[in-house]
Amino acid sequence: MSKFKKQKKELPPISTASLPDIVFMLLFFFMVSTTMRETELMIKPPQLPQAHAIKKFEHKNLVSTVYIGKSLNPNKKGDVIQLNDKIARVSDIQGFIFNNREKLQEEEIPFMTTLFKADIDAKVGTIADIKRNLRDIDALKISYAAVGRNE
């Protein structure tokens, strides 16, 4: 008789037990997809040019990056070069490459690439000076950094 009367009409509360899982999932996702910058930039972050034909690097440890851009000090004109964590001059390039070579196996050295991360307003002259230095020490593989263009 009371069988039907007692039936409650409220909906059961939605379980929140899985909420932590979802939050953790999101956390892991962002942890993975964020790339950390290895070196602190001492120059204005260079704005890379756009290009279609971009080759991605498969072995990151074979790449030595040279940053070229404007100084953080707006009064200072001209291009500034950064190697590792320091502002450098063109003449420091060779030492920088030799340093990187030491970390590698001998047979890997010919595959080393120097990546120019230069601002679109940087001057070709600066890059040419660096290239001349690279030629002198037989670091012949270079790459001009650019971002992919979506079309």
């Binding site: 991605k56 001009y144 650019a146 971002v147």
Partner: peptide, 18 residues
């Protein structure tokens, strides 16, 4: 997502110096 996400890698136009 771990498998499907590719981390952003540096890319550029590769050239060889003489």
């Amino acid at each position: 997502f771990l498998v499907a996400t590719t981390m952003e890698v540096d890319g550029g136009i590769a050239r060889k110096l003489p």
